[in-house]
């Protein structure tokens, strides 16, 4: 019995407007000084797809996520959401649009909660520059209910456990009903059990809201459990694009998943014999 099963919020009807947005990337490149981290990357993500990006550390997957999330500028190439280029900063980017949705939200590797704001105020940050009002408070409570932490609304962040902090961060990301949610290894620092709970929570919330999801992870099994599609990035390019067409919820360790995992791991480890990844330093090919 996990906290997810105890939350009535999941049974609520999904918001009809919280659909995802499609993402098109053409010729994307990013270099830091003379080192090319990404080069000539093309990618199409249809509306509402759950994409997982795996790869060795330093292969450019986090850089790609930061570019998608608007935290960084590409050196070359284009990023388009629903066919439109995007103002890369300012309230039109991070703030909610007319229908009350934000376009892109990021969930970081660290919870990044403001230590001086109570849980409630931290979740409210997700609405952007909005004055608090009874309506915003209602939305905060709903978002916290969705992650099973409504009763902790008045606490300071430092009393929460690592998993609870990440759930608050998830509530903060969800409250503006983003059309694309980017996850930068948000479960990396959690213990194994909390990780599995969080994966289930993510899946249920994604099934409810149907936003476009992009998850960067180093855990291949996590990618396979959650995603519709797994991308392998090596040396700044997509080298494997694998559709995972298995029914949900998927059982970790089922034969199909294990087989897929082995294939990806073989690829990742097999490459080691020919070239050490270190793609950030020496992007050959």
């Amino acid at each position: 019995m996990s906290f997810v099963d105890l939350c009535p919020a999941f049974e609520k009807n999904a918001d009809p407007f919280s659909d995802g947005v499609s993402l098109t990337i053409r010729g994307l490149a990013r270099s830091f000084g003379s080192t090319k981290v990404l080069s000539g990357l093309d990618l199409d993500v249809p509306t509402g797809q759950f994409v997982a990006i795996v790869g060795r550390s330093g292969c450019g997957k986090s850089t790609l996520l930061r570019l998608i999330a608007g935290l960084d500028e590409p050196t070359e190439g284009r990023l388009r959401f629903a066919g439109k280029a995007l103002a890369r900063s300012g309230p039109s980017f991070g703030g909610p649009n007319l229908a009350g949705h934000s376009l892109v939200r990021v969930m970081f590797q660290e919870p990044r909660l403001l230590p001086w704001a109570r849980v409630m105020a931290n979740v409210e940050i997700g609405l952007g520059a909005v004055e608090s009002s009874p309506q915003t408070r209602q939305r905060v409570i709903e978002a916290l209910e969705a992650v099973g932490l409504a009763e902790r609304a008045g606490e300071w962040p430092f009393v929460l456990s690592g998993g609870q902090k990440q759930r608050v961060a998830l509530a903060r990301a969800l409250i503006s009903r983003p059309q694309l949610l980017a996850f930068d290894e948000p479960l990396g620092a959690l213990d194994a059990l909390t990780r599995i709970e969080m994966q289930r929570l993510l899946e249920r919330i994604w099934l409810r809201d149907r936003f476009t999801a992009i998850l960067v992870t180093h855990d291949v099994m996590e990618a396979l459990t959650l995603a519709d599609r797994v991308l392998l990035i090596e040396s700044g390019r997509v080298t494997l694009d694998l559709a995972v067409d298995l029914p949900r919820p998927r059982r970790r360790g089922s034969a199909e998943l294990a087989q897929l995992e082995e294939g990806i791991l073989d690829r990742l480890l097999g490459d080691e014999q020919f070239e050490s990844c270190g793609s950030a330093r020496s992007p050959r090919r």
């Binding site: 608007g70 309230p91 934000s102 939200r105 990044r112 940050i125 952007g128 520059a129």
Partner: peptide, 16 residues
């Protein structure tokens, strides 16, 4: 700086 980055990406205006 991570908190500032978070605030920016969550659409806070400079005043906020």
């Amino acid at each position: 700086p991570q908190l500032v980055e978070m605030g920016r990406s969550y659409g806070l205006t400079p005043r906020e």
